[in-house]
Amino acid sequence: MTTALPSTEVLPAAVKDETTTSYAKRKLSSPWASLAALVIAILWTLPTFGLLVSSFRPERAIKTTGWWTFFSDPQVTLDNYKAVLDSEEGAGLGSFFINSIVISIPSVLIPLTLATIAAYAFAWIKFPGRNLLFLVIFALQIVPLQVTLIPLLTLYVDAGLANTFWTIWLSHSIFGLPLAIYLLHNFMREIPATLLEAARVDGAGHVAIFFRVLLPLLRPALAAFGIFQFLWVWNDLLVALTFAGGGDAVAPITVALANLSGTRGTAWHLLSAGAFVSIIVPVTIFLFLQRYFVRGLLAGSVKG
């Protein structure tokens, strides 16, 4: 069941046997191939590494010498992180970090729950208009967010919700729904109907069937979409700028960082530390939940 997501066939499988290892040895023997791989790996790592090193260097050192001098003249400090988190005299990123958390959790839970219920209806209940409605929701995946922002903002202002968390929660939930329904529906269709029939014969209703039969099987799909949606919301700038750009009280860390980069583009001691404060959450998820993370990202790559 763990491979029922449409995109999971593309997950790396650890297949190893005699022929592949001998093939690998032959390929490794080409020094040019190894060199090319090494060059790409370095190019992809060095920019992040440079900023990470800088975030621990004293402000003066960052501004006058390149980060590579760190290795001949190592000076380590946590002052940049203190300065960027502190709201008294620094950039006050701490409270924006909290905002990001407050924004992200409901923005994952709401679409995940609603999409599960909707996908259940599409997958297991027969009703008139089912195919047409599903096709419409599938098609809505391709609508670019930009098309919806201004009228949606007007609706929020009219409803008196402007510059509250509600606007961001609702928006991310709405934008996440089509993809979530599509993915979960595909996943649910893979579950053998006999399992549900058996439960129904035992007299279980929809809710009981869902919690007892489907939920345990759905866990990988829910995890994949949940992680994808969390990263999407956490890393989002456009939705946050549109609906919370005016008020610091509800803006997430990406907005604060983008503003900091706009107003103090050369304050590298703040920018470097700030960038890593914002990166730490998604990277931690990446390191610990790599399997679901990859699956979620691949499944949701067309969104937005």
Binding site: L51, S54, N235, T254, A258, S261
Partner: peptide, 17 residues
């Protein structure tokens, strides 16, 4: 793959540097 986890804003700061 790791850059996929980083926000576009974070990546922009990394490369601006």
């Amino acid at each position: 793959f790791l850059p996929m986890a980083i926000s576009f804003v974070g990546a922009s700061i990394i490369w601006s540097f």
